[in-house]
Design a protein around this nucleic acid. Structure first.
Lengths: 148, 148
DNA sequence: GTGTTTTAGTTGCAGGTGCAACTATATAAT
DNA sequence: ATTATATAGTTGCACCTGCAACTAAAACAC
């Protein structure tokens, strides 16, 4: 997975990750959020009432990272954590009015970034990109899971 | 750039970045290196004698990050920094014998990862992936550069 | 019911990163 | 020659992340 090309896939991935973070940190600055929280918020926009563990699982993120991101979202007023009656260990996550009012804005920010990335790519190319990246991510995940 | 698919491109990129880091940190542990340094080493394997600034520019990495990574490589014995005679601000980076002896190993580690990622992808798909990611990275870079 | 194992969330630790400010050096302008 | 501006590298700061250890609660085994 080389080599006619200047940059290896590892380089490209880390570059793209950096660019995305820089963009998101800039755009979310005025909302007191950073690149580390928005993904959690987006999951909750789709599934309110999930536990932290469920969100971490969906995003394939570390539990500690999840707890800290949700704590930030809570302290900034976007999320409420409520202990679940049936299982006292569990905290269910609910969006605040502030979060709901923010939804259109965050979706707009994300859409803009996607448009930036997709500039000059046909619809087919965009789809192929996603399909291939999904496959690659699956490969990586399976490999790392097998090693445990 | 969505949406038939479960995961957005932003999600996939950050996931892949994470997986790559986890892999590299694990593989480099015994060499006292982490995911933060190998890219610098790889550039130096191709171009010994570059300055820090040149390496940072090639990798499109922050100067501070570069300085810290190179400092780590130096303290672990992979790199020597030498002040450049003509311009005393500049430090030229040279590889040590240890680095040269390590080259085959690091290349093997990277090749393995690439093979993991490419599993099940045809040569054409692999090439398309790189072409598309290059284009996307270029899009992102141009957009962020224009904003300054 | 009691003891053991598993699980959700929290926290410590260490690593890595971008932005900004700073110092020393070089370059450009006067 | 002197002053102003630019540049290479360093360091502070804040942010984010995975791994591991821990606590409290739940599930499982006897």
């Amino acid at each position: 997975m080389d080599s006619e090309h200047n940059k290896s896939i590892g380089r490209l991935i880390s570059l793209l990750n950096k660019y995305g973070n820089v963009y998101m940190n800039e755009k979310l600055k005025d909302y007191n959020l950073g690149a580390g929280q928005y993904q959690f918020l987006m999951v909750l926009y789709q599934n309110e009432g999930l536990s932290q563990d469920e969100v971490a699982s969906i995003l394939k993120m570390d539990k500690g990272t999840t707890a800290r991101a949700i704590a930030k979202l809570e302290s900034e007023g976007y999320v409420e954590r409520k202990v679940f009656n049936t299982d006292k260990r569990v905290k269910k996550l609910y969006l605040t009015i502030k979060a709901h009012e923010f939804e259109k804005e965050i979706r707009s920010i994300l859409t803009n970034w996607k448009m930036v990335l997709a500039n000059g790519l046909s619809t087919e190319e965009q789809n192929i990109t996603l399909v291939l990246l999904n496959q690659i991510a699956l490969n990586a995940e399976e490999y790392l899971d097998c090693k445990h």
